[in-house]
Design a protein around this nucleic acid. Sequence first.
RNA 1: GGAGAGAUGGCCGAGUAGGUCGAAGGCGCUCGCCUGCUAAGCGAGUAGAUGGGCAUAAUCCUGUCUCGAGGGUUCGAAUCCCUCUCUCUCCGCCA
Length: 425
Amino acid sequence: MLDLKFIRKNPDVVRAALEKRGFDFDLARLLDADEEWRQMLFTVEQLKNRRNAVSEEIARLKKERHPADDLITQMREVSQRIKDLDEDIRRVDERLQDMLLQIPNIPQASVPFGRDESDNQEVRRWGEPPQFTFEAKAHWDVGEGLDIVDFQRGGKVSGARFSFMKGAGARLERALINFMLDLHITRHGYTELFPPFLVNGQSMVGTGQLPKFAEDMFKIENNDYYLVPTAEVPVTNFLRDEILDAEVLPIRYVAYSACFRAEAGAAGRETRGLIRQHQFNKVEMVKFCKPEESNEELEKLVHDAEEVLQLLELPYRIIVLCTGDLGFSSSKTYDLEVWMPSYQGYKEISSCSNFTDFQARRAGIRYRPQPRAKAEFVHTLNGSGIAVGRTVAAILENYQDADGSVTIPKALVPYMGGMTRIKVL
RNA sequence: GGAGAGAUGGCCGAGUAGGUCGAAGGCGCUCGCCUGCUAAGCGAGUAGAUGGGCAUAAUCCUGUCUCGAGGGUUCGAAUCCCUCUCUCUCCGCCA
């Protein structure tokens, strides 16, 4: 969320940012509510001041055994007015907060302007898409041919967009998780966390999934629990409502989690294969840093994610999202897209974002720039490091052979117990 | 799931016949003094949020709110009542 004071002082900046995003929001209503709220607050504070002063006076009089009945009668009325006003203020404040939570982050100046994903800009490419001398199959056909992925039984046991991994496929999934985590903790300086997969509503508000995107999530009935859509949620909220010392920054965490998404708006899209499932595995990197460091940390974050693909020798490109395609909480986002032969194109496999102080303000994560200074909001960032299911899909497609078998990327062989190929039986 | 105990400032910890309690005391921390050095000692200062004086920053002065959260009683609540959350102990169940 944005700073209300900032909005008050720079309504034009906010309006321009909303415009660039193509985001519809009535800023005037918010400013009116803010004005109303401040007026009422001023009035009620004066009344409370009076009440406090008179209450002290009453205490003094009683101590000296003087009567205070007149004052008490007077104050009875003042107290009632305060109660009524407080209730009005609470209502306006609630409206104000609701509106504030609906406003997206302000895109950085370096984010290209654009309407939708077609305006995203490519930053760089790595690797060459493989040339096949045979007709390359889509990963779901490769996987089913090897009997390592089972969509049929996933559908029977759970439903559409669920699947089983089996045999070498299950092991590949697990190997990738370990490979990615090991890379980030040993070479990129991250501390590993293993988070809860259910979080409360407050955490969802902290990272920006709620209140606006409730329909994208799975909620547990009769409890304030949501299945995490990404480890970003529990890991960012790990430090919620805390004040950190400056010297502990930057903090870098990496966490594996299963991710659960309702995919409410994706009906009919990518219904086959591992690309869009209700449950998938992901390794996520999360950073907390000083404001002046966050853009540099974003670049490093992208490199950390890239290295996974480089070591797996999977061709990819990096794009920077335009203003119209930028996520709600993000100020700037790079996507990593891996080459997928079945698409004859690049497919998102990681998303790395700088949220500036947007999440930190919602989640109350602050630090002291100097030992005794006023606490300020940190900047938070996160990026997939990387999506495991899509990596499996990319390996099955890019590493397939004419006979339907799949070569294991070299970096993964130790994690596969020395296995170098998944062969057709 | 059952029974009980608890939640106070950076930490520990007082505070029940409701009234100078935003809160004793200690530890820690900061500044100063003292001292060959260190240790010890002495003095002072040390919660957060938000608004106003203030037109920009610092300082200063000042209002309001905050003693797990929310509500109630009262002129007045850390203290009384209700609801909830979390932590701890014991029992049950369980991977």
